[in-house]
């Protein structure tokens, strides 16, 4: 998939590939021997966070799992 920042797609794909392998082969199996994708993630984040700022996308407005208030089952 493409990144929202046109120039970030390559960094994103490189990171995704690393993440998917780590997720399947380490994380899900309970192996906590360090994350090999940290550096790639940092580079990708520098790029994508700038793109988000430039495009004015409000991603920080809501806390994590944000709208997950207890809602009525109406």
């Amino acid at each position: 998939m493409n990144s929202v920042g046109e120039g970030c797609t390559d960094l994103k794909r490189e990171y995704d590939q690393c993440f998917n392998r780590w997720f399947a082969e380490k994380f899900l199996k309970g192996d906590r021997s360090g994350d090999p994708c940290t550096e790639m993630f940092k580079k990708y984040q520098v790029c994508v966070q700038k793109a988000i700022k430039d495009k004015d996308i409000p991603i920080d407005g809501v806390e994590f799992m944000g709208p997950n208030k207890e809602k009525p089952e109406s």
């Binding site: 998939m1 493409n2 990144s3 929202v4 920042g5 970030c8 994103k12 990171y15 993440f19 994380f27 906590r32 994350d35 993630f41 990708y44 984040q45 994508v48 966070q49 988000i52 991603i59 994590f64």
Partner: peptide
């Protein structure tokens, strides 16, 4: 209909 996809935060 999905045009872009990004991880913007991640942590263990």
């Amino acid at each position: 209909h999905v045009l872009t996809e990004d991880i913007v935060f991640r942590e263990v």
